[in-house]
Amino acid sequence: MKKYALLSVGLVAMLASCSDDDVTPSEPVNEEEVITKMTVNFVPEGGGDTLKFTFEDADGPGGNDPVITKDDLKANTVYNTSIGLWSDEGEDIAEEVSEEDNEHQFFFEVTDLNATYVYDDEDGDGNPVGLKTIWTTTDASTGDFQVILRHEPNKSASGVSEGDITNAGGETDIEVVFEDVKID
């Protein structure tokens, strides 16, 4: 009986002996794919200060709350607008989007704001991308301004190339609302 007991103890010890392993990861994962910062720059045609809208969430989804900044737009002005996207490590994600421009499209929704836009760029198939747009403001107003980026939308679906998101499909990579934006 004793020898069996010894045998089982031996086997148990064998297991226990490999228990000093280390599982500490050597470095944190660099999530270069996660967009942590978006800027929307409005450059007035014919000169003037660049107006900036930014959304920054340095630690990604969850954790600390994102920081959102905005400027006031001027009435009856035409703006050349461009979007910048970055990862936490400063990777230029707008560049990735423009490399895969046929798989991406930005959409913009305004509520109660007297502003309209047209796309100012296109992919290889002649469809819009939205990294560059031209905005025109009219009367003074206050409302919300929303930026949406869809991955793998159906750009040939009805209305999509005109900026109507209804039939776009795909997955949402960005959905940011700048609330109470002023045109004055």
Binding site: V12, D21, V23, P25, P28, V29, N30, E31, E33
Partner: peptide, 28 residues
């Protein structure tokens, strides 16, 4: 008598923060 030794390792290079941590779980 039951003994159990388990090691979980996230393989580096996914570019995405792991869902569960690395761990060692032992039981007796």
């Amino acid at each position: 008598v039951n003994t159990f030794y388990q090691k979980n390792l996230n393989v580096a290079g996914t570019g995405i923060r792991p869902l569960i941590p690395n761990y060692i779980r032992q039981s007796f």
